[in-house]
């Protein structure tokens, strides 16, 4: 809570982001740079769950649904508008609205945590199956065919605002992804520091007590859930810019992975899940190049090890070890 820590943390995060933008495009080959952009977009996704689960205490299996919705909304809007300028707010607004509707039903209906997990997971599966079955010409939104299993390979890359003739090169997209991650991180930090965020943490600690103090718990939970949905949507947009949108964005593979990134990185921290997402994706990609070994097997082994060795996640464990040397507090 000390006054100087926040500026230092924000300055450090900004430095890392600027360094990444300045250095990586020059040292990485195009393919690796696009991969790096994918990792950064997934880091935004991890950050969204870090906020919703790690601080809001809402274990949401549906983050992949908002991620996919963001990607698809972006692709469909960009194709229809013929310009990506207004597709960006659409990609953030659609998942946020869906999160608001779903969150309203869950929180105001006082649905318990277990069912909340089931509901969010079901939403993801429904969307996955639905989008998968949209092959054929009758499934189109305006000019954009949904493409079923194949997704929308013609997902247009971002262009300069108002200038559709000028699609941005991968270096720019990478920079935009990094800046988006930085903005989301700063936003999350500020939210948690503000009254709203402090109440959110209090609700995570003891919902009943927060209510007895006069806080409308439902509204706070809905608020953080919508913010998380919007952030996941942004992540889907960035992802769509490196690859293209396809039903796998809604798959169990992603729903499960996000949870692993957050757990391994450190539940209740913001930087942890970001690092967790990037490291685990690097590792999965590397494991994919190994002959004879299934990358999922390695990922599974890492998860089991992480839970056994560092039950609180990478970052808190690291902070504890460092703290023994310096007598310092935790990291968020």
């Amino acid at each position: 809570m000390s006054g100087i820590r926040l500026p230092i943390e924000l300055a450090a995060a900004s430095s890392v982001a600027i360094a990444a933008i300045l250095v990586l495009p020059h040292v990485l080959e195009l393919f690796a740079l696009i991969n790096a952009t994918v990792y950064v977009s997934l880091a935004v996704l991890a950050l969204s769950l870090a906020l919703v689960w790690g601080f809001g205490g809402i274990l949401c299996f549906g983050q992949a649904a908002f991620f996919g919705l963001g990607g698809y909304s972006y692709a469909v809007a960009a194709i229809n508008f013929g310009d990506t300028t207004y597709a960006v707010p659409v990609a953030i607004a659609v998942p946020a609205l869906v999160a608001a509707a779903l969150g309203y039903v869950m929180f105001y209906g006082r649905i318990s945590d277990v069912y909340m997990g089931a509901i969010t997971l079901t939403l993801t599966l429904i969307l996955f199956n639905f989008v998968n079955s949209t092959a054929g010409d009758q499934w189109r939104v305006g000019a954009a065919p949904l493409g079923g299993f194949n997704g929308i390979p013609s997902t247009p890359p971002l262009n300069l605002p108002g200038d559709p003739g000028n699609p941005l090169p991968p270096e720019w997209i990478f920079a935009i992804a990094v800046v988006s991650l930085l903005i989301c991180y700063i936003l999350a930090k500020l939210i948690l520091r503000a009254r709203f965020g402090r109440v959110i943490v209090a609700i995570r600690e003891n919902e009943r007590r927060a209510e007895l103090l006069g806080y409308d718990v439902r509204a706070y939970k809905l608020g953080i859930f919508v913010i998380g949905g919007a952030m996941a949507g942004l992540s889907g947009l960035l992802f769509a810019n490196c690859v293209f949108v396809s039903p796998t964005m809604f798959s169990l593979f992603y729903s499960g992975q996000i949870i692993i990134w957050v757990m391994v990185g450190g539940l209740g921290t913001l930087v942890g899940p970001v690092i967790g997402a990037i490291l685990l994706n690097l590792l999965t990609t590397w494991a994919g190049t190994l002959p004879e070994i299934n990358p999922s097997l390695i990922l599974g082994a890492i998860l089991v090890l992480a839970v056994l060795v560092m039950p609180r996640g990478m970052l808190p464990s690291l902070a504890t070890v460092l703290g023994r040397f310096r007598g310092a507090g935790g990291v968020t």
């Binding site: 600690e205 003891n206 009943r208 007895l212 103090l213």
Partner: peptide, 23 residues
Amino acid sequence: DSFEIARLGVGIKTQVPSLFDGL
């Protein structure tokens, strides 16, 4: 609801202390 009753100016203490352990 509880939170509305609390807002009227009612302080409520439960039998088992209900606290924010992590704060």
